[in-house]
Amino acid sequence: MTFGSMKYLLHVHQITIYLGVFSLIEAKQKAAVTLAGFPPEVVDQYIAFAADGDPIRLDSVVLGVLQFHLPHPPSQPLSAMTGSTRLLEDLGCDSLAMIDMLFVAEEIFGVRLTDDELARVTTLDDLLAHFRRHVVPGVPGV
């Protein structure tokens, strides 16, 4: 998206934008492509987050995307687990799953995460905090 088109969207659609710079229209387009095949509740939460910027929804999307990529299903939904749950040791989230998950998350939130940042993420809390730092409401709807 160019700056010009973003400005156009801001004026016409009265949307909220985030640091990752994405709009509701973009979010729906990204959901159709990048989240194709994901559980419907993850897609719904993502669209809702694009609309209202509620950080609780952001957490839900991040956990939903992570859960979808785990090599083996977790014993219970990640949303019901404690924040100290370890990604590798407790969830079996190997490096392949982590990279796959981050590619999807980066794409739908329009952010980039470095390898150094990734290395410091070891628990669910780390992961959620990481995304909350990068994907925060920026300029509210104009």
Partner: peptide, 22 residues
Amino acid sequence: SGAQWASWRWPAPYVIPKDILR
């Protein structure tokens, strides 16, 4: 036909674990 494994579909009797699917 989709670009990613997440969107692929197969008949119900088959269960394909994520660790091989990816």
